[in-house]
Amino acid sequence: MTYKLISNGKTLKGETTTEAVDAATAEKVFKQYANDNGVDGEWTYDDATKTFTVTE
Rank of each mutant, 00 (worst) to 15 (best):
M1L: 11
T2K: 09
T2Y: 07
Y3E: 03
Y3A: 01
K4R: 12
K4V: 12
K4E: 04
L5K: 01
L5S: 01
I6A: 05
I6S: 04
S7I: 15
S7F: 15
S7L: 15
S7E: 04
S7Y: 15
N8P: 05
N8R: 08
N8V: 13
G9V: 13
K10I: 13
K10P: 15
K10R: 12
K10L: 13
K10H: 13
T11S: 12
T11Q: 10
T11E: 09
T11L: 11
T11K: 10
K13G: 07
K13Q: 13
K13H: 11
G14F: 15
G14Q: 13
G14E: 13
E15P: 09
E15R: 05
E15V: 14
T16I: 15
T17I: 10
T17N: 06
T17K: 07
T17P: 02
T17V: 09
T18L: 14
E19P: 05
E19A: 07
A20Y: 02
A20W: 02
V21K: 13
D22Q: 02
A23K: 13
A23E: 07
A23W: 13
A23P: 09
A23Y: 12
A24N: 08
A24S: 10
A24W: 09
A24P: 08
T25M: 11
T25P: 01
A26H: 00
A26D: 00
A26V: 02
A26W: 00
A26E: 00
A26Y: 00
E27F: 15
E27D: 04
K28A: 13
K28Y: 09
V29E: 06
F30A: 00
F30H: 01
F30L: 05
K31D: 01
K31C: 05
K31V: 05
K31T: 05
Q32F: 05
Q32W: 05
Q32Y: 04
Y33C: 04
Y33I: 09
Y33D: 02
Y33P: 00
A34E: 01
A34Q: 02
A34T: 06
A34M: 10
A34D: 01
N35I: 15
N35R: 15
N37I: 11
G38Y: 06
G38W: 04
G38L: 06
V39I: 15
V39K: 02
V39S: 03
V39E: 03
D40C: 12
D40V: 14
G41V: 04
G41P: 03
E42G: 05
E42I: 14
E42Q: 11
E42T: 13
W43N: 00
W43G: 00
T44F: 10
Y45G: 00
Y45P: 00
Y45F: 06
D46C: 09
D46E: 06
D46M: 03
D46W: 03
D46Y: 04
D47E: 14
D47A: 13
D47W: 07
D47F: 07
A48W: 07
A48I: 11
T49P: 00
K50W: 05
K50R: 14
K50E: 02
T51P: 00
T51E: 03
F52Y: 05
T53M: 09
T53P: 01
T53I: 09
V54F: 14
V54K: 01
V54E: 02
V54S: 01
T55H: 10
T55D: 06
T55N: 10
E56L: 10
E56Q: 10
E56P: 09
E56D: 09
E56A: 08
